[in-house]
């Protein structure tokens, strides 16, 4: 049996912080790791193979077992609801999901609309509030939707709040805090127990919780 671990990494925002955390945990990743454009990177010395995926797809790769582990934001986990273990809060890429819109506006009474990249999360949130809204799924530049009248509100992740501000939007409600999680396939969790336990214990030693005790 091949004991090499395959880890699905999210391209973009989270990637650098995740790579840094792995290095802190003592994994020797080559310097070109960060600027690599390849989709698959083997780090033979460490017995690791990385695949670079769209953040939203990371849990999919892990659920199907083609990646043993993955690093995925809680936002993605909530949206995708994949059957994987959520083992560690890596406490990186902290942000939150929020409802935002044009300042001083109310939701349209007749046809309230919400644009988002997270249709499941948004639908669940408004349902819990007892509000009936139409959810419009967009794939990016969500801030555009209220500006040109596609929707009254958006549901999106907010980290510094700059994007909202620059587009003249304000936050109305916070939905949930988001950090990145280490996730693992249920089969790999059993069949490759040793290398995974090792990785988990090494990572958990270097996760910083900034005062928050866990």
């Amino acid at each position: 049996m091949n004991s090499m671990l395959t880890i699905a990494m999210p391209k973009g925002r989270i990637f650098e912080e995740a790579a840094e955390l792995l290095r802190k945990a003592g994994y020797r990743l080559p310097p070109e790791f960060d600027e690599n454009r390849k989709l698959i990177i083997n780090v033979e010395e460490e017995g690791l193979r990385f695949i670079l995926a769209k953040p939203m797809d990371v849990p999919t790769y892990v659920e199907h077992g083609v990646a043993d582990l993955g690093i995925a934001g809680k936002d993605v986990m909530l949206e995708e609801e994949r059957d994987v273990y959520e083992l560690l809060d890596l406490n990186i890429s902290r942000c939150y999901l929020a409802v935002a819109g044009i300042p001083g506006t109310k939701m349209n009474d007749v046809a309230p609309k919400v644009a988002t990249k997270y249709p499941n999360v948004a639908a669940a949130y408004f349902r819990e509030q007892g509000e009936q809204v139409e959810i419009i799924k967009l794939n990016g530049s969500i801030e555009l939707a209220p500006l040109i009248g596609l929707s009254d509100r958006i549901v999106d992740i907010v980290s510094s709040g700059r994007t909202l501000k620059e587009n003249g939007l304000v936050e109305y409600e916070q939905i949930i805090d988001v950090t990145s999680r280490l996730i693992v396939n249920p089969v790999s969790y059993r069949m490759k127990e040793e290398p995974i336990s090792d990785l988990v214990s090494r990572l958990s030693k270097v996760i910083s919780f900034g005062g928050k005790e866990l």
Binding site: M1, E63, H64, G65, V66, D83, N185, P186, V187, S188, R190, M191
Partner: peptide, 11 residues
């Protein structure tokens, strides 16, 4: 109990 096989991602 659950059964896992090495090369399949689901039990």
């Amino acid at each position: 109990f659950e059964v896992y096989a090495g090369n399949v991602g689901f039990s």
